[in-house]
Design a protein around this nucleic acid. Structure first.
Ligand SMILES: [Zn+2]
Ligand SMILES: [Zn+2]
Ligand SMILES: [Zn+2]
Ligand SMILES: [Zn+2]
Lengths: 130, 130
DNA sequence: ATGGTTTTGACAATCATTATCAATAACAGC
DNA sequence: GCTGTTATTGATAATGATTGTCAAAACCAT
C-alpha cells in the first residue's frame, strides 16, 4: 500500500507553487531554498509517481531535461511555454488531436501518441527583452 | 575555414543509410559495425554540425535522447515515427503551423517555435506485435 | 505502542553528452 | 609535390542528469 509522507506532500505543494514547468533539480533547489531538507532522489521519485498518477504533466525540454508541472486541466491538453521564465498556458487543441489521429491512420500507424508543445517568449519577457 | 574529412562524409552516408531517426551512439555503433574506426566524439560533432547546417533534422526522443535524421524534405516539416523500428514519415502540417502561430499570438508570445511529433507503431511493427 | 513494510536519503553507479589537448591531417601557397 | 599553418580528430576525463543501492527512519494497521 502507498503511504503518505511529508516529502511527497512537499513536492506536490512546491509544484503547485512553481506555476510553470520545472525540472527535478530545480524543484529540489527550490525546496532547499525554502528550508526543506528533502533528498534529491526523493524528489525524483515523487515527481515520477505524480506523473504516473496523472497528477503532474511532464515533457522534455528542448535540451533533453524532464520538466514537470501540476496542471489544472484534467483531460488531455498541450502547452504554450515561455522559454525564459517558464510561464505556461494550458491549451486545448482539438484540431491538432484530429490531425494527429488522421496522419497516423493514413500511414497505418497504431498506438499513436503525440508530442505537441509551443515554446516562445511570453508577453512580459518579450517586453523585457527589447 | 571548414575542411572536408572522410569522417564527416562517413557520418553523412551512415545517416542516409539509416533511414529513420537514430542517436549519436547508435550511429557510432553502426559505423563501427561497418568497420569504420571513427571516434564517438567525432560522430557527436558531425551530427551537431549537420543539424546546424540544416542537413539533418534532430529531435528529442521521449526518454530524452537526441535523435538525428537526414530528411529529404527541404522546408519545415514534422515526423511520424515508429517507436519500435524507427521508420519515419515526413509530414507537412499546414494546419498545425497555423494553429501554433495562432495560439502563440493569442497569448502574446513571440519568437514561438513548436515541437510536433507523432510516435506510434508502423504498419509492419503493428502486424508483428500481435 | 509494536512490528512488518514502505519510504527515505546519502552515496555510488550509469548513461548521454561535452570538454581537453596532444597528435594528426587538410589544404593554401609556394 | 612539399611545407607550414591550422582545423580536426579521438582517447580520455569531466560533467550533469537520472537511477540503483541499502541501511536507517518513518508509516500505519493491528
Ligand atoms: Zn516569460
Ligand atoms: Zn494532444
Ligand atoms: Zn525531417
Ligand atoms: Zn516500425
Amino acid at each position: 500500500m502507498k503511504r503518505n509522507t511529508w516529502q511527497r506532500e512537499a513536492v506536490r505543494e512546491a509544484l503547485d507553487t512553481s506555476g510553470g514547468f520545472i525540472s527535478a533539480q530545480g524543484l529540489h533547489s527550490a525546496l532547499h531554498a525554502g528550508g526543506s531538507p528533502i533528498g534529491l532522489a526523493t524528489v525524483y521519485r515523487a515527481l515520477s509517481d505524480l506523473a504516473d498518477q496523472g497528477e503532474a504533466d511532464s515533457l522534455q525540454s528542448p535540451d533533453g531535461e524532464s520538466l514537470y508541472r501540476a496542471c489544472t486541466t484534467t483531460g488531455h491538453h498541450h502547452h504554450l511555454i515561455c522559454r525564459n521564465c517558464g510561464l505556461t498556458v494550458e491549451i486545448g487543441a482539438d484540431e491538432v488531436e484530429a490531425w494527429a489521429k488522421r496522419v497516423a491512420g493514413e500511414h497505418g500507424f497504431t498506438e499513436a501518441a503525440h508530442v505537441v508543445d509551443v515554446f516562445g517568449l511570453c508577453a512580459t519577457c518579450s517586453a523585457t527583452a527589447r
